[in-house]
Amino acid sequence: MKMTPRLYIFVAISMLIFPSMAKSASFPVKTSSTQEKSNIDKHLVVRDGVIMPSSNSPEILQGFFIIENKSPNDMLLQNITSPICDRISANHSDQVKTSNESANFDIFKHLAVPHASVMVFPKEGYHLVCYKLKQQEPVKDTAPFTFHFLGGLNVTADFSYQNHE
Rank of each mutant, 00 (worst) to 15 (best):
Lys30Gln: 12
Ser32Leu: 13
Thr34Phe: 11
Thr34Val: 14
Glu36Asp: 12
Ser38Cys: 00
Asn39Ile: 11
Asn39Ser: 12
Lys42Cys: 02
Lys42Pro: 01
His43Arg: 11
His43Leu: 15
His43Asp: 15
Leu44Gly: 02
Arg47Gln: 13
Arg47His: 10
Gly49Pro: 01
Met52Cys: 09
Pro53Ile: 04
Pro53Leu: 04
Ser55Leu: 10
Asn56Cys: 01
Ser57His: 13
Pro58Tyr: 04
Ile60Val: 14
Leu61Asn: 04
Leu61Cys: 03
Gln62Phe: 05
Ile66Tyr: 02
Ile66Glu: 08
Ile67Val: 13
Lys70Leu: 10
Ser71Glu: 00
Ser71Thr: 12
Ser71Tyr: 01
Asn73Phe: 09
Asn73Ser: 15
Asp74Met: 01
Met75Gln: 10
Met75Lys: 05
Leu76Glu: 00
Leu76Phe: 05
Leu77Phe: 04
Gln78Trp: 02
Asn79Thr: 03
Asn79Leu: 03
Pro83Met: 02
Pro83Lys: 05
Pro83Val: 02
Ile84Asp: 05
Ile84Trp: 02
Ile84Asn: 03
Asp86Thr: 11
Asp86Asn: 09
Asp86Pro: 00
Asp86Ala: 09
Ile88Asn: 01
Ser89Lys: 04
Asn91Ser: 10
Val96Lys: 09
Val96His: 06
Val96Ala: 06
Glu101Asn: 05
Ser102Trp: 02
Asn104Val: 10
Asp106Asn: 15
Ile107Ala: 02
Ile107Trp: 00
Ile107Tyr: 02
Phe108Ile: 09
Phe108Cys: 04
Lys109Ala: 10
His110Asp: 06
Ala112Trp: 00
Pro114Met: 07
Ala116Phe: 11
Ala116Asn: 15
Ala116Val: 07
Val118Glu: 13
Val118Ile: 14
Met119His: 02
Phe121Ser: 03
Pro122His: 07
Pro122Cys: 08
Lys123Ala: 14
Glu124Thr: 14
Gly125Trp: 03
Gly125Cys: 06
Tyr126His: 06
Leu128Pro: 01
Leu128Gly: 07
Cys130Gln: 07
Cys130Asp: 07
Tyr131Thr: 06
Tyr131Leu: 12
Lys132Gln: 14
Leu133Arg: 15
Gln135His: 12
Gln136Asn: 15
Glu137Arg: 11
Glu137Gln: 13
Pro138Phe: 07
Pro138Gln: 15
Lys140Asp: 14
Ala143His: 07
Ala143Asp: 07
Phe147Glu: 08
Phe147Val: 10
His148Ile: 15
His148Glu: 14
Phe149Asp: 08
Phe149Asn: 07
Leu150Thr: 09
